[in-house]
């Protein structure tokens, strides 16, 4: 596809608005991308400053810059936190519109279709933002429409949809955290939460690998469970939900938004997956109650904690996974020998 010349077009109308940003930085700690990298250049304020540089001709457009603009999960937390009422994500969308199809065009956190795509159109049908479509024999992403919710990445039967930048939301990264945590003596449960149902915090700002110190988080980490936050419950694939059991987790709790409150319908997808996993767990001699889904309203920290406490109580009654599996095996062996 022929690239067009970069021109400031959509961004021009925001010039005065960019003056409104008093650069207080209140958006920082709410941004999942910043929380992952802890580089100021990835914070929402930085994106505004960069765009200001473009508009004032003090910065030349570059792929590096575009990469930052396209790296946003559209969670809107920066907009909510802005002390000056700047509509940051609207500005970012217009910046994308100016960068798209130019020599600097990039993908950032938006979804990309890989070579293994079978053109089944599952992702096209499932995209809650109408950002994926079939064109010239390929499935492509409209990177302005794409909200980086990740639903498509979790649905592709060929695992051919991915994002260039994941900022701690991909299975490999989450798996590493799961393994690290479950190796600890008191570790029992993995809690998956979504960025909306339990706002704020991505786990990326709170990994506690240091032995004698810990990185600031919203509470002191509980040694018995670890909360892993994804951008949306719909990103949680069945293999990811099963991964903790491979590390002998006692249980997995999945927290999603209540019905009707997820703009990606990721909560419904997640509920279906948890339901489907229960018989699979049974067939593996694992009590299906060891996985559970709860709906937590946006910002309901107390409700989230209560759900965790209840689940922990239940899981402790069930005991360690290893004991249960060996006991079931013994029962079956006894049964076979009796037969």
């Amino acid at each position: 596809m022929q690239k067009r010349k970069f021109e400031l077009n959509h961004l021009l109308k925001w010039r005065n608005t960019l003056d409104k940003c008093i650069r207080c930085g209140y958006c920082y700690e709410h941004c999942p991308v910043f929380k992952h990298t802890r580089w100021e250049t990835d914070a929402p304020r930085a994106k505004l400053i960069m765009l200001y540089g473009l508009l004032s001709c003090q910065l030349e457009p570059s792929k590096y810059m575009a990469d930052k603009i396209f790296s946003c999960f559209n969670c809107q937390q920066c907009v909510a936190a802005c002390s000056s009422g700047v509509p940051l994500t609207e500005i970012f969308a217009d910046a994308r519109a100016d960068f798209v199809n130019t020599e600097f065009d990039t993908t950032g956190t938006t979804s990309v279709t890989g070579s293994g795509c079978g053109n089944c159109l599952t992702c096209v049908r499932a995209c809650p933002h109408d950002a994926r479509y079939f064109k010239d024999g390929h499935i492509v992403t409209d990177s302005i429409m794409c909200q980086s919710c990740g639903i498509c990445t979790s649905l592709c039967p060929n695992q051919s949809v991915s994002s260039t930048h994941t900022y701690g939301t991909d299975r490999v990264y989450l798996n590493r955290l799961i393994t690290d945590f479950l190796q600890k003596q008191e570790a029992k449960v993995i809690v998956f939460g979504c960025n909306w149902s339990y706002y704020p915090d991505l786990q990326s700002s709170s990994y506690d690998t240091e032995s004698s110190s810990y990185i600031p988080i919203y509470e002191k980490p509980d040694p018995e469970y670890k909360i892993l936050i994804t951008m949306c419950g719909g990103r949680l694939t069945k293999p990811l939900m099963l991964d903790p059991f491979l590390e002998n987790a006692w249980g997995v709790l999945v927290a999603c938004c209540p019905e009707g409150e997820c703009e990606n319908d990721g909560n419904l997808t997640s509920a279906k997956r948890v339901k489907a996993l229960k018989p699979i767990l049974s067939s593996l001699d694992i009590n299906p109650d060891r996985i559970e889904l709860v709906n937590i309203a946006h910002g309901d920290k107390a409700g989230f904690q209560k759900a965790i406490d209840n689940f922990m109580e239940k899981i402790k009654t069930l005991g360690p996974l290893v004991d249960e599996r060996s006991m079931n095996q013994q029962i079956r062996n006894t049964k076979y020998s009796t037969d």
Binding site: I22, R23, G53, Q58, L59
Partner: peptide, 15 residues
């Protein structure tokens, strides 16, 4: 370490 012009521009201001 960062030294891209965009990074330098961002770190060039405060509130």
């Amino acid at each position: 370490v960062k030294d891209d012009p965009a990074d330098l521009f961002i770190y060039g201001s405060d509130a």
